[in-house]
């Protein structure tokens, strides 16, 4: 009779909310991105989604948000799971309000964590991914400085893992002073490969367990 209890049917699982793995893309849409670059970036976002939805765990756990910045800082997409993420078609214009965009990304992350906590949702350390082909432009210097300072504090407190990718023309030196982690330089307009790598990294995070930050494998699409 013992073997009559069929474990697979009998056992009920606890209904816990799916843990979340937030990722904010902070994308430069200033005038210099016009043409090929913005097209490649748009296509890269499609690739990103396609790769995330292929992994069942990632498609349930990853949450993507998109911030576009030029003379304006817009939340193009608030946090959403990959299956419901519709990649935006970004256009390029104006200057490069990078400091404000970094602040916005950190705000968005902070707010999302509060929502997670209020709803008893477990979560992974949020990632932010800044992509630019320039440097801060058109903003008061103080805005940029306070963004850099806040980012340092947030990294130290492990509130976020913030990565920067420079496209051809980006001022890597300035980027290096803004973000804590060493920025990487994209080879050509290889956004597709970069986003494949990013989606794999998000999948890995959604599986991994560690007592320290996941080390980045050396990306094939970029160099330091």
């Amino acid at each position: 009779m013992a073997e009559n209890i069929h474990l697979e049917d009998a056992i009920e699982f606890a209904e816990n909310p799916e843990p979340r793995c937030p990722c904010v893309l902070v994308l430069d849409t200033s005038a210099s991105m016009q043409g090929e670059a913005i097209e490649a970036l748009n296509q890269g976002l499609v690739t990103f989604r396609e790769n995330l939805i292929k992994d069942p765990m990632a498609s349930r756990r990853v949450e993507v948000a998109v911030i576009a910045f030029d003379n304006e800082i817009r939340v193009v997409q608030d946090f959403i799971t990959p299956d419901r993420f519709e990649p935006p078609r970004l256009t390029a214009q104006g200057q490069t309000f990078m400091g404000g965009a970094i602040q916005k990304a950190l705000d968005l992350i902070q707010a999302r964590k509060q929502q997670y906590r209020a709803n008893g949702v477990a979560y992974y350390r949020p990632w932010a991914f800044l992509i630019t082909d320039g440097e801060p432009q058109g903003e008061p210097e103080s805005v940029v400085q306070s963004a850099a300072q806040r980012l340092k504090n947030d990294e130290t407190a492990k509130r976020v893992a913030f990565f920067a990718v420079g496209v051809e023309g980006a001022n890597m030196e300035t980027l290096g002073t803004l973000v804590v982690r060493t920025p990487v330089k994209l080879h050509g307009l290889n956004f597709a490969e970069m986003f494949v790598w990013l989606s794999r990294s998000m999948e890995a995070i959604a599986q991994s367990r560690t007592d320290e930050q996941v080390a980045l494998p050396p990306p094939g699409w970029a160099s330091v």
Binding site: M1, A2, E3, I5, L7, A10, I11, E12, F13, A14, N16, P19, G120, A122
Partner: peptide
């Protein structure tokens, strides 16, 4: 732990353990 515990309180989910221990006690 996601299946066996109610994570908000970390208390055991009884419908997980009840059939499991019943099966365990009855196994030959």
């Amino acid at each position: 732990q996601m299946l066996a515990l109610k994570l908000a309180t970390a208390e055991p989910h009884a419908p997980f353990f009840r059939p499991l221990f019943r099966w365990h006690r009855e196994a030959r």
